[in-house]
Amino acid sequence: MTTAATETPLAASRTPSTLAPNRLARALIYTALILFAVYYLLPLYVMLVNSLKPLGEIRQGDMLSLPLATTVEPWLKAWSTAQIGVQPTGLKPYFMNSILMVVPAVFISTVLGALNGYVLTKWTFRGAGVVFGVMLLACFIPFQIVLIPMARMLGLLGLAGTIPGLVLVHVVYGLGFTTLFFRNYYAAFPSELVRAAQIDGASFFQIFRRILLPSSGPIIVVTVIWQFTNIWNDFLFGASFAGVDSIPVTVALNNLVSSSTGVKEYNVHFAGAIMAALPTLIVYIVSGRYFVRGLMAGAVKG
């Protein structure tokens, strides 16, 4: 699952056998592929066009038509005045919470993962395999199993309901994957270079900084994207451990959409959903190649 897929870029072109030599068959294949594309794009399209319609137009019109009277009102409302929780704050403060949570969590888990991967490949010791196995298995636990003790632990540490508490949770449960990424990447890095530097008297950290780090660009990007996507999109930990002032955007969006009071403002819900999705979508659009590599390298998405 691990390295083989990483090294086979999807865009590589061996000459594939052609399923369909004739024109009709090829037309059918293209039609099928385009229909699939429509299927995948449809929900995004529905969210987008309906987020730009006044509410009445959604109720009376149909979901697939373009807005007759385009309005950005739902977007403004979702961002700054929609009722979420007690105050009509919109998603803005929750969006900020997510940023404050994601940035340190991604940074810390990536740094630790890089150092762990470095130790596990270039400074191996007896039992390193077991240590790695223990860390790897931790990636796959159902998080339900840690919810109860984690709530108590955060209470003991005085971090219950805070953003630092959420950062801790995401760092701990992201470590397995970040270590896995760097370990697999550094395993392919020539150990001779490390040994030569050791003989020259370079220290543990000097070797890491001067020899491994300069060529770690791609895997850092992969890891950062992976962690960013997972932590930004997290719902379970946010719903379980966030306090009033640390609710992340996914939880706020769910509160907005599922609140049963008042009129259901579908257009505001759609605008909010796109807003919550935008950061990871942008990352995906800008660096989709690395996103896919992360998926493949982890092979198993957590």
Partner: peptide
């Protein structure tokens, strides 16, 4: 296009 849903939150 086929892959972008994977970047979205399940809540979205």
């Amino acid at each position: 296009i086929y892959l972008y849903p994977m970047a979205l939150s399940f809540i979205v």
